[in-house]
């Protein structure tokens, strides 16, 4: 009887355990999938806070290099009623990249909200009107996009000082 249990039931239990484990891993994803329309609503839900969004992806080396600065900036301004968020632009159909992105966020210990754009990658760039990343989008207290810091112009590349100055400018607007 015991041998029969071992042969028949135990493998089933093991398979079940593996499935639950995978489910938990998926649930543990730090990045909430969100399509463009939901993202617009999400931004509106943060009114009247200033919102700072870091657009990034694992394939973007510059994004990875500057991300720690975003984490530091969040630490500096988290008590100023500013919402920080990251928006991942890896291919939604590329589980390897999404898994690596999750691992990266965990390693960064970034204590703010993380999303991934649940759109076809090229559609995501079109809808957000982005040409390239990294990009930092900053919204004022009325929800208006006031700063779009990008590398789109070779002669006007943004720096972390630009991001911080934009935040300070909006904080000074009463």
């Amino acid at each position: 009887m015991f041998n029969r249990f071992i042969r028949l039931i135990l493998p089933t239990l093991l398979l079940l355990a593996i499935s639950v484990s995978n489910l938990n891993a998926d649930d543990a994803s730090l990045m909430k999938p969100i399509d463009y329309q939901q993202w617009i609503h999400k931004l509106e839900s943060h009114l009247p806070s200033i919102v700072v969004v870091d657009m990034w992806a694992m394939w973007c080396v510059s994004c990875i290099e500057r991300f720690p600065e975003m984490v530091k900036m969040h630490a500096r301004y988290k008590n100023d009623n500013i919402v920080f968020a990251s928006m991942n632009l890896d291919d939604r159909d590329d589980p390897e990249s999404l898994s690596a992105a999750n691992d990266f966020l965990r390693s960064m210990n970034a204590q703010f909200d993380h999303y991934r754009m649940d759109e076809n990658l090229m559609v995501a760039f079109e809808k957000t009107n982005l040409i390239g990343i990294p990009a930092v989008l900053i919204y004022d207290r009325e929800g208006k996009e006031r700063y779009r810091l990008t590398g789109d112009n070779p002669n006007q590349q943004f720096s972390e000082d630009d991001v911080e100055q934009a935040i300070i400018n909006l904080l000074n607007e009463k």
Binding site: W59, C60, V61, S62, L121, M122, F125, E126, I131, G132, I133, P134, G151, P154, N155, Q157, S159
Partner: peptide
């Protein structure tokens, strides 16, 4: 068309 790829890092 919209080129898709990595960003060139220009020295400022």
């Amino acid at each position: 068309t919209r080129a898709h790829g990595c960003t060139v890092k220009y020295v400022q």
